[in-house]
């Protein structure tokens, strides 16, 4: 019996790919560039390209195809743009026994942290946030970005060192 070939052109298969990867690619781009709308546009373009090329792409290669397209597209679209991040702070608790001074300091700290993160280099930020916010392991990140685990470790180290320095003296 011949082995059944899974075709990306089949709607069920395509939908499955979308459900599995669209969100992840979108957040990956968001962490790198800090612009959710652009990230969503690029995801849409990548999946459209997958759709029109569906007959030429093997199911097993679809993931790396999507990431490659997303990476290329983002480089074209955002090459000259400075990253502006819009991380939202979690809504403040209405009932709290923290003192107003403490809350002010907290707010100030979050503000500085936000700025420091957006000032990181794209490569450092994507690694740092993929690890801290998506709980991705270094190995997963390394595969995604096609770099070594060692390089991920180094970027994590550098990202944290820079964040610490900026938070201690915000004017650097």
């Amino acid at each position: 019996m011949p082995k059944k070939v899974i075709s990306v052109c089949e709607e069920k298969v395509y939908d499955k790919l979308y459900r599995e990867h669209a969100e992840k690619i979108c957040y990956y781009l968001y962490y790198k560039y800090g612009d959710m709308e652009k990230a969503q546009d690029i995801v849409q373009d990548s999946f459209a390209k997958l759709w029109i090329n569906c007959s030429k792409i093997l199911f097993g290669a679809a993931k790396s195809f999507l990431y490659k397209i997303a990476n290329n597209a983002s480089i074209n679209a955002l090459v000259h743009q400075k990253t502006v991040l819009k991380y939202q702070e979690i809504a403040q608790k209405t009932y709290t026994n923290e003192s107003p001074e403490f809350q002010m300091e907290e707010k100030e700290f979050m503000h500085r942290l936000n700025r420091a993160i957006s000032d990181l280099k794209d490569g450092q930020r994507e690694v740092f946030l993929l690890n801290r916010m998506e709980n991705k392991t270094y190995k997963e990140i390394a595969e995604m970005l096609e770099i070594s685990v060692k390089a991920v470790e180094k970027r994590m180290h550098l990202a944290l060192v820079i964040l610490r320095k900026k938070i201690k003296s915000p004017n650097i």
Partner: peptide
């Protein structure tokens, strides 16, 4: 810093809505 990062929020990505638009 790590505690602060935990408090950061990210925008929502609605997969089903996205698939329909796709």
């Amino acid at each position: 810093i790590l505690r602060g990062v935990e408090r950061l929020d990210k925008p929502v990505f609605d997969v089903e809505k996205g698939l329909k638009a796709q």
